[in-house]
Amino acid sequence: MKQVLQVEDMSVTFELHQSEVHAVREMNFSLAQGETLAVVGESGSGKSQAFLAIMGLLAKNGRAEGRAMMGDINLIGMEPKQLDKHRGKDIAMIFQDPMTSLNPTLKIKTQLSEVLVKHRGFEQSQAVKSATEMLERVGIPEPAKRANAYPHELSGGMRQRVMIAMALLCQPKILIADEPTTALDVTVQAQMLDLFKTLTEDFGTALVLITHDLGVVAGVADRMMVMYGGRAVEKGTTDDLFYDPRHPYTLGLLHSTPHIAKRAERLDPIQGLPPSLEHLPKGCSFNPRCAFAFDRCLVERPPLAPTGNGREKACHYEGPMAYGKVA
């Protein structure tokens, strides 16, 4: 498989008034063509910031270090002008709220064709035609009519499709989707997930799906990366992580997710609250909420280390993790 993105030792830091906050630390992963990688974590785990950094979209007080190699180009620390040549063309991102990413005063077709004119040098009329075709491919009924609409005239699901169409116009190698279905109804969500599958299969796009919903992950992702407190704590294939989680946090997330087909009397959630990145606990940052933590976890941070079969985890605990023990 051809690797389209190789992230090495990336970190993201935010300057605050008196302090610095490390939103992401020591991030390493690679993404192959046509593959779907799910990045799972709760708010404040750094999952969104990591990919905003790759896209060069960090807030002003944010700073990224390390390498994010797309072929032989390093996206981190690239001049904005240089980055603009790749953004939208080779790597695209869609967000939870499509309304914030669409210009409310321009028609859909104007916004879509602009991308083609800018990145691929299309003639205006040709660009509008391709844009309309793309709308049809992402499953928008009556694409010619919708192309003439303004964003507010479309429903949430429709807008998200327009965003995807826009992201795909230049056939990027990588599509980053940040909570793309969180604001949508289940029925529309199912349609979108279906669309993502078609995308990776037909276009060969590599998809990064940033989400907190394990149900969504199970349906579409090939591999998973679980993040906690700004670091990856477990990586592996989706099946491995769902059926044989090795990190207590992954296990806890699984037990916190209600399963429609199994009605348990009560869920078995992780205790406590996600930590604030400003005050991460000493040692393993999960230790205050971990049912398996022992003295070593309080002082020494476990490194992310391979455990065979291409899996990696960052945990000192090696024993069995019985169901219900997470409580």
Binding site: V217, A218, G219, A261
Partner: peptide, 11 residues
């Protein structure tokens, strides 16, 4: 049927 199930094989 549209509800995502947190179980890759079933999904």
């Amino acid at each position: 049927t549209a509800v995502p199930i947190p179980d890759p094989r079933l999904a």
